[in-house]
């Protein structure tokens, strides 16, 4: 029963993706991307990644949809213009997809406890976390303590991306470009 639900959930995700590919309306594609992200969050819950599901639900269905919609509002773009050259890309993606599926045949099955990814440092984190840090949420302890450098880097990237957007759209860049135009 659970397997059927998982199967249907993942298949539903593929349906949303096809819908986004098919839709010509940009507004429709943006909204469908929001739904797709929420669906992704559901799948993350099924795969035990509650923290990730939380973030995806807030970010994907919330902030990125708002940002895409505000870009649509600024640019006024409504419909995507299709140029008929769809055969070659279809062939390319088909070949790459087939190669990836062939490569996946060697991968450990999903949920295999003895997969290499589950054997290396993770048992150390799960066992050490209780004694060394003593907080129940191992994701937080790995994020903040064991991999603190990593997270510092990520926060810096977010900050830098924010600065980049301000440079492109902020008040100062506009003043300068207007002065140059005049």
């Amino acid at each position: 029963m659970v397997a059927i639900v998982d199967f249907a959930l993942l298949a539903g995700l593929a349906v949303w993706a096809l819908g986004i590919v098919h839709l010509r309306s940009l507004f429709g594609a943006a909204m469908m991307f929001g739904i797709y992200s929420l669906h992704c969050a559901l799948i993350f819950v099924v795969l035990d990644a509650v923290d990730v599901a939380f973030t995806e639900a807030a970010v994907g269905a919330g902030i990125s949809t708002v940002l895409i919609l505000s870009t649509l509002a600024i640019t006024g773009a409504k419909l995507e213009v299709r140029h008929s050259r769809a055969m070659m890309p279809l062939l390319i993606t088909g070949v790459i997809g087939a190669a990836l599926i062939y490569a996946s045949l060697d991968m450990p099955l999903v949920g295999d406890p003895s997969a290499p990814a589950n054997l290396h440092v993770v048992p150390r984190y799960l066992q050490g976390s209780a004694a060394e840090i003593n907080i129940p949420n191992v994701v937080t302890s790995v994020l903040a303590s064991y991999r603190g450098y990593d997270t510092l880097g990520e926060v810096t990237v977010i900050f830098t991306a924010g600065i980049g957007v301000l440079c492109l759209l902020g008040r100062h860049s506009r003043k300068r470009s207007r002065r140059r135009r005049e």
């Binding site: 990644a49 923290d51 990730v52 973030t55 995806e56 970010v59 994907g60 902030i63 990125s64 940002l67 990814a117 440092v121 993770v122 984190y125 799960l126 191992v138 994701v139 790995v142 994020l143 991999r147 990593d150 997270t151 990520e154 990237v157 977010i158 991306a161 924010g162 980049g164 957007v165 492109l168």
Partner: peptide
């Protein structure tokens, strides 16, 4: 928990780069 940590940060970085 390790992939969860990596992806958790990647999602938020992803939205920041999307905004860029």
């Amino acid at each position: 928990p390790l992939p969860h940590v990596l992806i958790l940060t990647a999602i938020v970085v992803g939205v920041a780069t999307t905004a860029l």
